[in-house]
Design a protein around this nucleic acid. Structure first.
Lengths: 210, 210, 210, 210
DNA sequence: AATGAATGAGTTTTCATTCAT
DNA sequence: AATGAATGAAAACTCATTCAT
């Protein structure tokens, strides 16, 4: 009864199909949430039959779980890179830009995450309360250190991080609204956002002179 | 076939039950989206039997529609108040605070909206492309006017508005994450956020001296 | 718990309402059958609320039963009048005309009966196998008597009666089809049918000369 | 979402099951009408589970529609064969016999049709007002032609056709009543009816001599 | 008499999952 | 690997009937 997805040795085809399914599932779960998504939708998106899809994954739940498992890791990557040794403002604006690029390049992941949180994070609470909180605490300490050293203006590091998350992920999660409101200017939305946000956080953090 | 909810003259009970149902539905739809929500969940949340709930509303769809209809109006209220005649920085930071208060006092409405947008706004696209965009355009023009007059620093008004939406709504939509990350400091999250965001946007907008 | 309909002494209003309900129910049952009919439909047709309707009749079943009880009696009236002492051809053609008038004046009763029979007569089998069959046997004997006496052409009396039922009730049961097929001539359909059927059965029954 | 029944290429099983379902549905719809029929009844009659039945047809409605679609065509076949070039009385009595055979061999189709008409033909009005009326008009003209040429007695062709429909379909639609009334003679009912009806219409149509 | 409110028992689907091939 | 077929469980309603007023 060993299912392909759980076998240690996957053939190339198995790997390809699994990824095809995960990609399709990401698309649908991101929009409709777990309960709002049907296997039929995923199968249609992947161009597979429903039983065939279930040949690769044991259940709808298994697909979702796999997606979430992969998610947090990549999701936190940009924050991990924030380097205590670098220039504080540079580090933070670089982080903003990396997050914005993720919103641009992986909007579905962003929406999947948003969907989970909206539901009260029933399936990723452990990761939120564990690795994510730990990482934030660590980086918040670095930021506090910079502020204490006068290298950036005093700032609440947690709310700073929240505002970076919020402003960047907004371009993924609320993309449809952003696009409609911007109208013709929508094509440049990520460039404009990059400039705007760089300015926003630079002004916030630049230590007051004198 | 006139259902209670659609009748012009509602009895006291009808009004109470309708509101009870809408409130329960808001709770559930906000978390699970339209498809992910079951009438059973709403009925349980409202403490009613399923058929009794359907005595007041024709269908699951009708409840959802009613909620969305009521939503946008209250949702845009804070932005409507932005006054061209007031002090620019005050106007904008006041707007931020009002939005933040809404995130605190009406988090379910915020999440319902977020959920709709995540799904591609299938049911509120008209309102996004119509009234919402019109209002944003109008207020963006005001902000541009202020910048042109040198009363605030030059800024992209659209991305400014996006960032206000994003940062304030974050405290409703991602509340669970915010609370977990903040740990003990979670009680003061709205006060801290108010201070942080006021500072953030004040620094952004304050016209450079000289 | 004495219901109005079952009480011995009915007020005038009770009688009126009961008849109103029966008439409305006849309309609906005739078209959709017992299971296909909802109390809501009957109540709407009668202009009453559903609970009010059920104040007068204990149940949907009770209304239907009442209708069927009244039905057979009036339904067989024309056949009862067939008089062994009269002129044979006159008696039969008169019967045809009376049946045709009933199809014209009481089409709903005809359709209700048809509906019951189509379903296999679950509720009126007793009456079919009892009073109806008895009456038909009796009248068939009369017709056979006439034929034996050479007063009408030899004919199978049962199939004669079936054909009279069929041809006359057709103008009630299949009225919509008759009307559409006849187009403009539909207004005169009962007059034309009377002439046609009189001719049909007269030719059938007129004893061959010589 | 392509259902088996709508696919161009059907497997053997699909064809068999579809026909099984249609046959079961015909049985039940014919007796109880659309609303009065439950999918459970059809499934039980077909010996399938309800979801399995719905695997082959999208909905109760789809089954019904399919049945009606197939119905009119075969239903009108006998009338189509009425040949202007043949002997008038032969043509018409042959038509009567063919219709009677259909009543004997396809009683469920007859009852389904009757049920639809009783309800006011909501789903087949188009076919009644279109193809059926056209065909009747065409054949009525032929009959009128025969009468004008003195080859049959003068007769209203529309009411002639109605009476043929009525008398023959009666043996399907009112079969239970016919059987009960005839008692022991019921086995020969179709033979007796054939003789009776042939005589009936022959006498009607035979041109008067001299 | 009349009606708004409520509900248990259906009825029509939908859907995740299993089975057979 | 892949798919047609099948199903139990659930979900969205529907409806006859009851209850309280």
């Amino acid at each position: 009864m060993a299912r392909a997805a759980s076998a240690k040795t996957q053939t190339r085809i198995q790997k390809e199909k699994s990824e095809l399914i995960l990609s399709a599932a990401l698309e649908v779960f991101a929009a409709y949430g777990f309960r709002g998504t049907t296997i039929d939708q995923i199968a249609a998106e992947a161009g597979l039959s429903k039983p065939n899809l279930l040949y690769y994954f044991d259940s709808k739940d298994a697909i979702h779980e796999q997606l979430l498992e992969d998610l947090l890791d990549t999701w936190l990557d940009p924050l991990r890179s924030l380097d205590a040794e670098g220039d504080p403002v540079d580090e933070i604006t670089s982080y903003v830009i990396r997050k914005l690029e993720m919103a641009r390049d992986f909007p579905r992941e962003s929406r999947l995450f948003a969907n989970e949180i909206l539901q009260g994070a029933p399936r990723i609470m452990d990761q939120i309360a564990g690795p994510l909180k730990d990482l934030v605490d660590e980086k918040a300490a670095i930021i506090t250190g910079w502020a204490d050293a006068g290298r950036i203006a005093p700032v609440d590091p947690y709310h700073l991080i929240f505002s970076i998350w919020a402003t960047t992920q907004h371009y993924a999660d609320f993309d449809i609204q952003v696009a409609v409101v911007l109208g013709e200017r929508a094509d440049q939305r990520f460039d404009d956002a990059a400039a705007y946000l760089t300015n926003l956080f630079t002004k916030l953090l630049r230590p007051s002179e004198g």
